Simulated scan of single mutants.
Amino acid sequence: MSVDVSRAKRLRQQLPDAFRLPTEADPRPDNRQIAAVCAWAAALGLGGMAVALRAFVGLISEYRAWYGPVVITIGLLGLACTIAAFASVHRRRLPYMLLATASVTLLIGWVVTGL
């Protein structure tokens, strides 16, 4: 039980540092990293538009009570991960992990909207 408590305490201390806007004291991220995060986010945005179009067609073509909430939840999760990637751009690997998670949600959205 004490291991879980110490892990939770450590996580509470680390999360505010990981997801914060950079200050003047933080080192400036590399231009390549900023460009890579922007390019990946742009690709996710274009893919998200395609999924949104498929979701719209799915919403108006046939009524399924589960469809709307599931598609909205998947989209919001992907959007939150993409926004968090920009907020953590001063970190080395965290933005890429978040963008990878957003990419997975985009693929899941593509599969769900194809049903």
Rank of each mutant, 00 (worst) to 15 (best):
V112I: 14
G47A: 10
I108E: 08
S6L: 14
L21C: 09
L94E: 15
I83C: 00
T113I: 04
L44F: 07
S61F: 04
T82S: 12
D17I: 08
V89W: 08
F56W: 14
F56R: 06
I72C: 01
R93H: 15
N31K: 11
P29H: 07
V3M: 05
V51L: 06
L76W: 12
W66H: 08
G45L: 09
I34P: 01
L44P: 02
T73A: 15
G109E: 03
Y63K: 10
V70S: 04
W66I: 04
L99C: 03
L115W: 15
G75F: 14
Y63Q: 05
P16D: 02
M97V: 11
R93N: 13
T73K: 14
V71Q: 00
R12A: 15
G58D: 08
P16R: 02
P69T: 00
E62I: 08
D30N: 14
R12E: 14
I74T: 08
D4P: 02
S2Y: 09
C38V: 04
A65W: 10
A50C: 08
A39R: 14
N31A: 13
G48H: 01
A25G: 05
G75P: 06
M97A: 12
L11W: 03
Q13G: 03
R91N: 11
M49D: 12
T105K: 08
I34S: 00
L21T: 12
G48K: 01
P29K: 05
A18Y: 15
A102S: 15
V5F: 09
G109A: 07
R54P: 02
E24N: 05
R7L: 12
T101R: 03
T113F: 00
G109K: 04
L107G: 12
A80K: 13
